[in-house]
Amino acid sequence: MAELIIISTLNGVLYGMLLFLMASGLTLIFSMMGVLNFAHASFYMLGAFLGFQISQWAGFIPALILAPLIAGGIGAIVERYGLRTVHKNGHVAELLFTFGLAFIIEEVIQMIWGKLAADYRVPSFLDFSAFTVYATNYPAYKTFMLLFSIAIFIGLILLLTRTRAGLIIQASLTHPNMVGMLGHNVPRVFMLVFGLGTALAAIAGVIAGAAFVTQSNMAALLGPILFVVVVVGGLGSLWGAFVASLLIGLLQTFAIASDWSLSKFFSGYFTPARGTILFDIWTVTIAQVGPILPYLLLVLVLIFRPTGLFGTRDT
């Protein structure tokens, strides 16, 4: 039991940190520009496929550096020539634009890399067991992922609190309307923030792609969970995104490890008839419910705390 808890906690925190790498960029973009980037998870996917391709050509370390740069560059171009054009038509148009972008990125990836999973593997120099918990070997690559995402997290905090650009971004988090009055080149700040946010997502893609499945549906699978994170945390709250990322990371990881079900709990007392909805609910295990849990959490948060856990402002 203790073994299971330790391993699940490690995996949960790892998953949560990866979510936060994406949610932080999403939140920064939303806070500054008022745009919820529907295509954010697509940049994560783009990062994974670019990481795969570059590591095939030049190795993992160049991929880890180049893929986020390329994805971030594409993000900046998208902001400069796409979002800025639709900005005058309002937030709905902006959201629709990023929706269309997600659509196109998925299709372009299928066009180039196909629909099947890419053969993106853990680099051989990190393919060993780092340490052992009771009887379970914990892989070095996962340890690397965890440490790397924590390092990026710390780097982000330093960027936001210790640099001039970071202070502008921070100011915009609390006073979104004041940025323009600071006398900075606001459009360029927007472009940089968009590029930075998408690059962060791409970093998550490069490191997660090697450990998990790199496939053209990965954005569609992850995107909705990302939105749950930012809505549950509170739209525009970086701290809320952090807490919600870890919460959902842990929730899903622990759920997968549990085979508990209602029928197990009530065994012997009551059994619904086979072939009814109640029977389905009765016999489903927590592990099977895992994919739904974030969305159930979303509904609960909406009912009891509509602004999210740490949200202060409405849209």
Partner: peptide, 16 residues
Amino acid sequence: RGGTAFAMISLGLAEL
């Protein structure tokens, strides 16, 4: 809620 929050929630419910 309207606007962006509604859009996100509609997506969450659809996934649910």
